[in-house]
C-alpha cells in the first residue's frame, strides 16, 4: 500500500508535466485544427531559456520560468505568423509537414548553436529537500512541479472561461466564419492562443530542467509525443481533457513501470490510446458530433 501511494506521487508529478505540454497541443488544435509537432521543441527552447537565465543572469527559478514563458510566447507567435498563417487555407497535411519542419529546425538550430551535448541545470537553482510523511518520500521539487502546474492550469481556465479573450478563443474554435462576423479578430485570437500554449510549454520545459536536471536539444521529442497522446486521450481540442489526459498518461506509465514490465511502458501507453480511440474515438471527454453532410 505504501509503495502504491509512493507510485501515485511519482505518477502525479510526471502527469503534471505531460498535462502542461498537452494543454498547448490541445489549445492549438482546438483553434486551427493543427497538430503542432513543434510544440515539444518549444518546451525544449523554454528549458534552455530558463537555463541561461539562471546560469548567465543569476536569476532565481521563478524569474527564469517567467523569462522562458515570455520568450516562448513570442517565439510561438512568430512561428505562427511566419510558418502557419500562410498555410491557414491550404490542406491540414501541408501545415502538419510545416510543423514537422519547424520541429526539426528548432532541434537542430539548437544543436548547431549550443552543441548536442546535454546541459546541467545548476543544483543551486533549486535545492532539493525530501520530506518523509508516514513513510512516503515526497520531494519539494515534486510539490513545486505539481503546484505550479495546477496553478497555471487554474489561470488558464480562468482566461478561457472568464475573460473576453477566452471567449474569443472559444468562439473562433467553434466556428471561425461566424466569429469573424461577430467582429472577432481571428488573427489576433490565434496569435494569443499560440502565445499561451507556448508559454505553458516553456513552463513545462523549465520544470523538466528542475525536475530532471539535464536538458538537451532533442529532449522535446518524446515528452512532446507523449503529451500529444495525452491530449488525444482526453479528447483533443478540450482543455479539461488535456489536463486529465496528462495525469492519466503519467499515472499509467508509472503503474506499468512499477507493477508491470517496464520494457513495455511505451507499448502499453500507445495500446491504451488505441483502445480508447476505438471505443470512444473522440477521447475520454470528447462529444461525438455527428458528421455534417
Amino acid at each position: 500500500m505504501l509503495e502504491f501511494l509512493q507510485q501515485m506521487i511519482n505518477g502525479l508529478s510526471l502527469g503534471a508535466i505531460y498535462a502542461l505540454i498537452a494543454l498547448g497541443y490541445t489549445m492549438v488544435y482546438g483553434i486551427i485544427k493543427l497538430i503542432n509537432f513543434a510544440h515539444g521543441d518549444i518546451m525544449m527552447v523554454g528549458a534552455y531559456v530558463g537555463f541561461f537565465s539562471i546560469t548567465l543572469l543569476g536569476t532565481d527559478i521563478v524569474v527564469a520560468m517567467l523569462a522562458a514563458m515570455i520568450f516562448c510566447a513570442i517565439l510561438g507567435v512568430i512561428m505562427e505568423k511566419v510558418a502557419y498563417r500562410p498555410l491557414r487555407n491550404s490542406t491540414r497535411i501541408a501545415a502538419l509537414i510545416t510543423a514537422i519542419g519547424l520541429s526539426l529546425f528548432l532541434e537542430y538550430i539548437t544543436v548547431v548553436i549550443l552543441g548536442p551535448t546535454q546541459k546541467v541545470f545548476p543544483a543551486s537553482a533549486f535545492p532539493v529537500k525530501a520530506y518523509n510523511i508516514a513513510g512516503l518520500s515526497i520531494l519539494n521539487k515534486q510539490v513545486f512541479v505539481f503546484v505550479s502546474a495546477v496553478l497555471l492550469m487554474v489561470i488558464l481556465q480562468y482566461i478561457i472561461k472568464r475573460t473576453k479573450t477566452g471567449k474569443a478563443m472559444r468562439a473562433v474554435s467553434l466556428d471561425r466564419e461566424a466569429a469573424v462576423l461577430m467582429g472577432i479578430s481571428v488573427d489576433r485570437t490565434i496569435s494569443i492562443t499560440f502565445a499561451i500554449g507556448s508559454a505553458l510549454a516553456a513552463a513545462a520545459g523549465v520544470m523538466i530542467g528542475v525536475y530532471y536536471q539535464t536538458i538537451n536539444p532533442l529532449m522535446g521529442i518524446i515528452p512532446g509525443l507523449k503529451a500529444f497522446v495525452a491530449a488525444v486521450l482526453g479528447g483533443i481540442g478540450l482543455v479539461p481533457g488535456a489536463m486529465v489526459g496528462g495525469f492519466v498518461m503519467g499515472l499509467l506509465e508509472t503503474l506499468v513501470m512499477g507493477y508491470g514490465n517496464s520494457l513495455y511502458r511505451d507499448a502499453v501507453a500507445f495500446g491504451v490510446l488505441i483502445i480508447i480511440l476505438l471505443i470512444r474515438p473522440t477521447g475520454l471527454f470528447g462529444k461525438n458530433t455527428g458528421e455534417k453532410v
Binding site: 509503495e3 507510485q7 511519482n10 530532471y212 508509472t254 513501470m257 512499477g258 520494457l263
Partner: peptide, 20 residues
C-alpha cells in the same frame, strides 16, 4: 531485472519497485 530506454528521465516508479 528492469529496464529504461534512452531519453528517459523519470525512474521513480521502477526504483520504488526495486527498493521493495
Amino acid at each position: 531485472e528492469e529496464g529504461f530506454v534512452k531519453g528517459d528521465r523519470d525512474f521513480n516508479a521502477t526504483l520504488t519497485k526495486i527498493k521493495g
